[in-house]
Simulated assay, not measured.
Amino acid sequence: MEELKSQNPSDNLTSLIWKLSIGSTLAWEISKFFGSEHPYLGPVSLILTIQTTMDKTVSLSFKRVIGTMIGIIITVIVASHLKVTGLNLGLIILIGTYTAKFLKLDKKVLHQIALTILFVFAFEHKSDHYAMDRMRDTLVGVLVASLIQFIWSSLNSRKKTMK
């Protein structure tokens, strides 16, 4: 389902501003509701995945979730045996991104894996809940992004039909 494009580029920016604002509010509050100690992770996922169309938002959301899952799994398995150092971070990112290459996943997933490994490796030692919050809040963020995109697209389609 392709979102109808506005004749005015300013309308598209206005639409994005509202989606980011409303979506971030919802993602934060939903993450907190589900017990997150890091509720900013929900809005981060929303901000990084919301796109101009529903299809693009869902595609990027899927890649973010896959990359986050792989990054968390590899970091939890490997990082528990390592100290937090730059060299160890690089080694875990190497393992994670080569895993994605082996699975024939695209560059966007590789980026998500690397980001997840970085943050989980750095923060899990300080907060035992970071990895779980990261996964749950990523799901919250991408689901809210998709919901906001769906509602916005539906409203725009109705508005165009009424004209």
Rank of each mutant, 00 (worst) to 15 (best):
S153H: 08
S154G: 15
L110C: 04
Y130N: 09
I93W: 00
M1G: 13
E2Y: 09
T99V: 12
D137N: 08
L91A: 13
K160M: 09
T161H: 12
I92W: 00
F34C: 08
R136L: 13
K108A: 04
H125S: 14
T75Q: 11
H81Q: 15
V44K: 01
H125D: 07
F102Y: 14
S6T: 10
V109H: 03
F34S: 07
I70S: 01
L94A: 15
P43V: 04
L103W: 08
S59P: 03
L16N: 10
D133A: 07
N8M: 09
I95L: 15
S10R: 14
I95H: 00
H38N: 15
G141Q: 02
L110W: 06
K56Y: 05
N12G: 08
T99M: 11
V44N: 06
S80Y: 11
E29R: 10
L13E: 09
I148Q: 02
L147H: 00
L94R: 10
G35Q: 11
I30K: 05
S21V: 12
G23T: 01
I50T: 05
I73D: 06
H81W: 14
K63S: 09
I70G: 00
H129W: 01
T99Y: 07
K107M: 12
I95E: 02
L26Q: 05
D137M: 07
G71W: 02
T57W: 03
D55C: 00
L155V: 14
K101E: 13
L115H: 06
K160I: 09
W28I: 03
L60D: 07
Q149P: 01
K5I: 10
H125G: 06
G90L: 12
M54C: 08
K163H: 11
E2W: 06
A100F: 03
S153C: 03
T85L: 11
L13M: 09
L60H: 09
I95V: 15
E2I: 12
L155M: 14
K107R: 13
I77H: 09
I17S: 15
D137R: 05
V144E: 05
I113H: 01
V120C: 08
P9Y: 00
I92F: 00
R134K: 14
A100N: 01
T99H: 02
K19R: 15
V78E: 07
